[in-house]
Every structure is written in C-alpha cells, then in structure tokens.
C-alpha cells in the first residue's frame, strides 16, 4: 500500500472541509457575516483527521490538479451544461421505449475504445455512461493494440511486428444497439461526454 504524501493529505482535508461547511451550514453563516468559530474549528480538526487516514485511497495522481481554477470551471461546465442534456435525452428515449409497446428493444454488449488517459477521467466517464439510462459500463480492460499501417514485407524477410500501445476498452451493455462497429458505437454512446471529460483531465 502506497503511503500518503503530505500534499495529498492537505488536498483531501480541503475537500472534506468544504463539504463540512456545506452540510453543517457553516458556509451560510459565514456569508451572513456571523461565523460560528466552534463549528469551523471542529470541522477543520475532523477533516485533517479524515484526510490523514483516507488520502492514500483517495488520491493517486497529482494532488492539486483539480484545484486549478480553469479545470474547476470546466468541471462545473461539464456537470451543469454537457451532462444534463445527455441525461435528459437518454431518459426520454428509455422512458418512451418502456411505455410504448411498438418501439423495439435491441440489447447487446459492445466494446468501445476510450482515449482518456487519467484514472479519474476514466472513472468519471464510466460513471457518466452508467448514469445515463440505456447504457451500463460492465468492465474496463486495457489491451495492447497495434499502431499505424503495416509496412509491406521485403523479400526474404518476415514482416516486422507493429509497435503496440496500451488502449483502454469499455464493455458497455446497450439497450438499443445501433451499430456493432467500435468507433461508431463509441461516438453514439459517449461522443460529447468524452470530449468534456478530456477537456478536464488531459
């Protein structure tokens, strides 16, 4: 098990403290100009304590990445603008499919390549897909795939093996399989979502 570094602990404690402020009502009191000092001190102590223990499970990459204001704004934009639109579209589709006996269901499991590198990005994209009705991420695998075109083999030589790179794949259960081709299916399921996630984490 990896040991937690001090920046990771600080970052975790900050997140805990923000949620403490939100839930305990400390933030509202602060905005109204009457901060409750005891509330703030207890919150700070508890969040540092929690951060000490849970930072090593919570943070595996660069700890202050998401505290960058530009990234935070893009995360907010993703959560408020991009994702709800997809959510409502998919919800209407599945609701109509359930209520209308004429519309067929056409289930299947497709395999889709994903170009997000960061662990958090992959988890976030998979959760977004699962949260959208009609698609559930079933597994994430990493495979080596060949890159580039095969060069024509010369006389008396075997064709050199293509260089490979790791590529992440999702297995997605899809209620209405529109195409079995990995690229097309990927565009249909996660086209706009993946762009949003990549803007945050790459």
């Amino acid at each position: 098990m990896k040991k937690a570094s001090i920046p990771a602990v600080i970052s975790t404690a900050l997140i805990c403290f923000i949620f403490w402020l939100l839930i305990s009502g400390g933030l509202v009191a602060l905005c109204q100009g009457a901060p409750d000092v005891r509330n703030l001190v207890v919150g700070l102590l508890v969040s540092v304590f929690v951060g000490l223990f849970s930072a090593r499970f919570f943070i595996h990459e660069s700890p202050f990445y998401l505290w960058n204001p530009a990234k935070l704004l893009q995360l907010l934009f993703y959560c408020i603008c991009i994702f709800p639109i997809e959510l409502i579209k998919a919800n209407l589709d599945v609701a109509l499919r359930a209520l209308n006996p004429v519309l067929p269901i056409n289930p299947g499991i497709v395999k889709v390549p994903v170009d997000v590198q960061s662990e958090y990005g992959q988890a976030m994209l998979a959760n977004s897909i699962t949260l959208t009705p009609g698609t559930i991420t079933m597994d994430i695998v990493e495979e080596e795939v060949p890159v580039g075109e095969a060069s024509p083999a010369k006389e008396g030589e075997e064709a050199a093996p293509l260089p490979t790179k790791p590529q992440t794949f999702y297995y997605i259960h899809w209620i209405n399989v529109a195409s079995e081709d990995p690229k097309e299916a990927g565009d249909a399921i996660k086209g706009t979502l993946e762009k949003g996630v990549r803007r945050i984490f790459d």
């Binding site: 919800n91 599945v94 289930p107 699962t130 009705p133 209620i175």
Partner: peptide, 10 residues
Amino acid sequence: MQSSTNIATM
C-alpha cells in the same frame, strides 16, 4: 437494470 436507472436519475 437499464430501465431502473430511469428512476434513479430523473
């Protein structure tokens, strides 16, 4: 399960 995510989100 797909259909139940409908309840869970909207």
